[in-house]
Structure formats: structure tokens, C-alpha cells
Amino acid sequence: MQLQQLTYFLGVARTQHFTRAADELGVAQPSLSKQIRVLEDELGAPLFSRARGNITLTPAGEALLPLANRILADVDTARLEVQELVGLRHGRVRLGATPSLCSGLLADTLRRFHDSYPGIRLLVEEGGSRDLVRQLTRGELDLALVILPLPEDTPLATTPILRDDLVVAARRDDPTLSGRTHLHITDLRDRPLVMFRQGYDLREATLGACRAAGFEPRFAVEGGEMDAVLRFVEVGLGVAVVPSTVLAGRPGLQGIPLPGLHRTVALAHRKDVAPTHAAGAFRATLESFLRESAADGTLPVGVEAVSGRAAAGIGHGS
């Protein structure tokens, strides 16, 4: 099995067309088709169904797809790491983070890292925690800031770095919440909720807390990203459970605490691949930034640095 064959396989899987894949890869279509056949012969199974001109993956192709993606991602990482060591390039960090972190602490950390290592390229992928876990597992990211707990069989190593409180985001002029200094999850029983899309840890946190309290939440609208969810709350569609840090710069919203409801953020990487030197430098920068911010009291309200401590993940209590 050759890396070139895997590249050709992924090209056809992506385009669902042999000729288009050959054009994208800059290779003659007969040569690409021949290498795919050689790969199929070696594996002992067809990878594509070619019925009536429609190119689709067979079960064997579906099984190979995530493995081929991961193999080629690892090869790319290895190439960059070696080039970094011999001085040909300065390196690259592919970092995944949730929208709430991108709009808060992460921006300051990225600035510090860029000032210290201006030659290292920073590629930030924004998404829900579950989406980031899948991307990290497939080798598409070097590091990711994810929400604990992860599944027990995860191939990722995690280090807890901070814990932030969850609050109910509501319009500041909502007369039904006037004077409320805190809410219990049961107070959401009859309120319409603005709900995040699938893949967001906040969706699972909200649903889990409501169900543990014995009720199913009522959705006014669902399927949004962070900015959309907050905007939907601003126009009065409902309330949402969010980290306290995302409400900065939104004067029309208030955050009402939900005592005991929090989430733990961890820095994750794959267990089977050592982080690159550039990724290691970013991790050190992040941990240093959090330690210093905790020491001088500049962490946002509701955020606590927990690096080096055991983490309980999303839940109630401490």
C-alpha cells in the first residue's frame, strides 16, 4: 500500500468521480484508476461501487476512509515536524476550540503565542466539542480544547485547564426575571429554550440537567451556533444555557447564575501521536497564561483555572 494510492482513493471518495479526482490531483485518469485497482487487489475488496456511472463507497471503502484520512494527516504532521527541526520551516499548530472559548480567553492566549513565536502558523477550527473530538481523532487537529467527560474508550489524552460556570442567558428587560439573582434548572420547565445544534456540549449539558430534574425542555428554536443562539435570545425567542463568559459585549442580555452547573474544559491530543514541538509550545503558553491570570485575578467572573487537578466534567456541585 502506497501513500499515493491512499491520496488517489481519498480524491475519488471526495469528488465521487474518477476524472474530476484526477484533474484535482494533477494526474492522468488512467493512471489514477490503475492505482485504485492495485489498491483494491492488495486489500482484496472493491472500494468503490461503479454501478450506472455513480461512484459510491463500498463497505470496504467506508472502513478505509477514516483510516486513510488519519494516515495522510499523520504523514503531513511528521513532515512538518522534521522540517521544523532542521530549520526549513517554523511549524504549524492546528487548534480546535468551542465558540465560547474562541471569543474569550483563547484570543489573548493566541496573541501571546504569536508574539513569542511569530513564525509558527496558527490554524484555528471552531466547532462543538463533539465535532472537535472527531476531528482530533482523525488527525485533522494537533490540539483541541474540549469539554469533559469524554467517552471511556476515547483515543485522546486530556489535561483539565479550566472550569466555567453556566448561566441562563435572557433579555435584560425580561419582566418575569426581574430581581432574580439565581435560577434552578427547574425554573426552565415552562420556559421556551433556544437550543444549540447537535455536536455542542452545551446542548447535552442542558438536556441532561433538565432530564435529571424530571422534565423535557421546550424548544422555541434549535440548531444554532453560539452567535445565532445569543441573537435569538436578544430578540426574545427564549432563554439559553451558556457559559458566563460569552455575554461580554452584549448589553441587552443578562446572565442569571445556575448554582452548581458548570463545565470543565480540557486540552486534548491523540495518545498515539506525540504533539509537535509547535503544539508543545502552544500548550506551555496556554498553561502559563492561565496560571498568571489566576494569580493576578484577571480571569473572567465564573472561570477557575484547574490545571493539574482532577476534573469532574459537566455536572452539579464542585
Rank of each mutant, 00 (worst) to 15 (best):
Ser244Phe: 07
Gln83Asn: 15
Pro251Leu: 09
His90Ala: 07
Glu222Leu: 05
Thr245Ile: 10
Arg283Cys: 04
Arg189Tyr: 11
Ala228Trp: 02
Cys210Met: 13
Glu287Met: 10
Val194Ile: 09
Asp272Thr: 12
Ala107Leu: 14
Leu65Cys: 10
Ile256Leu: 13
Ala157Phe: 12
Thr159Met: 15
Asp153Met: 01
Gly61Ala: 08
Pro257Asn: 10
Ala157Leu: 11
Leu106Tyr: 05
Ala28Val: 06
Pro30Thr: 07
Arg94Phe: 03
Val229Ala: 07
Ala213Arg: 13
Val93Leu: 10
Met226Cys: 12
Val133Ala: 02
Ala68Gly: 10
Gly280Val: 03
Gly236Met: 07
Asp296Val: 06
Gly87Ile: 08
Leu258Trp: 01
Leu95Lys: 04
Ala60Lys: 09
Met1Gln: 00
Ala169Asp: 02
His17Tyr: 07
Glu81Gly: 07
Val239Thr: 12
Glu292Lys: 12
Asp153Arg: 08
Leu145His: 05
Thr77Met: 06
Leu166Gln: 00
Arg218His: 09
Val273Met: 14
Ala107Lys: 13
Tyr200Asp: 07
Ala209Gly: 07
Thr285His: 09
Cys210Asn: 05
Arg14Trp: 05
Gly252Asn: 08
Gln254Trp: 10
Glu216His: 13
Ala310Gln: 11
Arg172Pro: 01
Gln135Trp: 09
Val239Gln: 06
Pro66His: 12
Pro175Glu: 07
His316Phe: 14
Leu188Asp: 05
Arg14Phe: 06
Arg203Asp: 09
Leu237Met: 14
Thr206Leu: 09
Met195Pro: 00
